[in-house]
C-alpha cells in the first residue's frame, strides 16, 4: 500500500537532486533546469497532500489549484530567465558560471 511518506520521500529525493545540481553544476542553463526540477518536486508533494488530506470524500482541490499556479509562474520564470541568459551570452559569449564574476565579492 502506498503511503504519504512514499510520495514525500520521492519528492524529497527529486528536490535534493535539483539542489545538488544547482550547487555542483557550472553551466547556468543546467542550473536553471535543476531549478525547474526542484519546482516540480514541490508540486509532487502538494499533489500528494491533496490526495491524502481528503475533505468530504473528495481530494482537497485547493492544493491542485496551487500546483496550477506554480506551473504557470514557473513557465513565466523560464521565459524571463532564458531571455536573460541569451542577453548574457550575447555580451559575454559564455554560459559558464565561473566566468561571470563581475559581481563577485
Amino acid at each position: 500500500m502506498t503511503t504519504l511518506s512514499h510520495y514525500l520521500m520521492a519528492s524529497g529525493l527529486l528536490f535534493s537532486l535539483g539542489l545538488a545540481g544547482v550547487m555542483l553544476r557550472r553551466n547556468i542553463l543546467i542550473i536553471f533546469m535543476c531549478l525547474e526540477m526542484m519546482l516540480s518536486a514541490v508540486n509532487l508533494s502538494l499533489v500528494a497532500f491533496s490526495r491524502y488530506g481528503i475533505v468530504n470524500g473528495i481530494q482537497n482541490y485547493d492544493a491542485q489549484v496551487l500546483v496550477f499556479f506554480i506551473i504557470t509562474v514557473a513557465a513565466a520564470e523560464v521565459a524571463v530567465g532564458l531571455a536573460i541568459i541569451v542577453a548574457l551570452f550575447r555580451s559575454r559569449q559564455t554560459t559558464h558560471s565561473e566566468d561571470l564574476n563581475a559581481m563577485k565579492f
Binding site: T3, S5, N56, G57
Partner: peptide
C-alpha cells in the same frame, strides 16, 4: 505519514 491511501467517495 504512514496512513494508507484514503478512498475517494
Amino acid at each position: 505519514f504512514s496512513k494508507p491511501i484514503p478512498v475517494l467517495m
